[in-house]
């Protein structure tokens, strides 16, 4: 088609313009497909799991997926904030564990009110994020290693304060949010939804959001443009800690227990989910919708493999391969269409 219109284009002006437009619309369509590849991939997997086991498509299972996606989703948001400014935070998984443990022990040992204990836990998490931010900006520590050190310290800290024991028997009011339902629907996903809406609004519509993107896109240029880059990075780390604290509380309330290695398993998935959803590890790129897609994709893989009775010895491996494919498809998008 295009070649033909090129040939007939000699002498006329309208034809090549049309050819260009047509070509661009094809490119745009291809781009739309590939840019939403996470969602297409997600729909495909839901369909496949549904065919393999119709139970997968029941309301109760889908509710279960959303509940399971809540903690990972919040951690994905926390990680994305830091990725957007071109840094990384390996400590968020450990933060969920130790912050919830400190809150829970404050309630159990010191007899503080439940609400106050929860706030203390989230406050500790926020403070850890703030310290990460200070180390990376003021002390110019490399975030990869700084947060690795923080992660190991916090993991060890949790082991120390829990003495290796699992913290259980929390008051019912503490665990309430993890079990509560409203009209048959669990409350946890409401927190997830609220988190994504708030983050989406912040990123798209506020000065803070623009500053985060600009800082990750080109920190030197952002500084010259009048953005206080260091402050923005500290805010990113602090907010990341705050959200991890909320995720930590929700995880404890949902499980009704805090193990001595609570939260550690989430870290790599919380990094993978945003990247699958289009957040760049180099900063400055990515959106909330993509992050949500990445989170749901990983959760569907996790839950789906369990439901279709894949023997547990194979679940991790197959899950890994599926993630691998998702990232490969995304890389293909970048190579073929350029990264926008």
């Amino acid at each position: 088609m295009t070649a033909q219109s090129d040939r007939t284009a000699d002498g006329s002006i309208a034809a090549p313009v049309l050819a260009v437009k047509r070509q661009r619309s094809v490119a745009v369509r291809a781009q739309v497909v590939l840019q939403n590849v996470v969602w297409i991939w997600l729909a495909g997997l839901i369909l496949i799991f549904g065919i393999l086991n119709p139970f997968f498509l029941t309301t109760s299972n889908l509710q279960n997926i959303l509940v399971q996606a809540t903690v990972l989703g919040l951690l994905g948001l926390a990680q994305s904030l830091v990725l957007l400014v071109g840094e990384i935070d390996l400590s968020i998984g450990a933060v969920t564990g130790i912050s919830s443990a400190i809150g829970a022990l404050a309630i159990q040992r010191l007899g503080l009110p439940v609400g106050l204990g929860i706030i203390i836990g989230i406050g500790v998490a926020t403070m850890i994020g703030f310290i990460n931010g200070l180390c990376v900006t003021r002390l110019k520590m490399v975030s990869l290693i700084e947060s690795l050190g923080m992660m190991i310290t916090l993991q060890g800290g949790l082991l120390a304060i829990s003495q290796g024991n699992t913290i259980t028997d929390m008051p019912g009011s503490y665990n309430w949010i993890g079990q509560a339902t409203l009209g048959g629907w669990p409350l946890m996903p409401v927190v997830l939804l609220a988190g994504f809406i708030a983050m989406g609004f912040m990123l798209r519509r506020t000065i803070l959001g623009r500053s985060l993107y600009a800082t990750g896109g080109n920190a030197a240029a952002a500084l010259v443009a009048g953005i206080r880059v260091q402050r923005i990075k500290i805010i990113a780390f602090t907010l990341s800690g705050f959200i991890s604290g909320i995720a930590g509380y929700l995880l404890a309330a949902w499980q009704g227990a805090i193990t001595s290695d609570q939260g550690n398993g989430f870290l790599l998935y919380a990094i993978a989910a945003p990247i699958i959803g289009g957040v760049s590890v180099f900063g400055g790129r990515g959106g909330t919708l993509g992050i949500l897609g990445g989170v749901l994709l990983l959760t569907v893989i996790h839950v789906g493999l369990a439901i279709v009775y894949v023997p547990s010895f194979y679940v991790t491996m197959i899950g890994g391969v599926l993630i691998f494919i998702a990232v490969a498809v995304d890389a293909l998008r970048v190579n073929v269409l350029g990264d926008h």
Partner: peptide
């Protein structure tokens, strides 16, 4: 180096 944010739009 420290002028444009190359990956972002003209508008931004």
């Amino acid at each position: 180096r420290d002028g444009i944010v190359a990956i972002h739009s003209i508008a931004k």
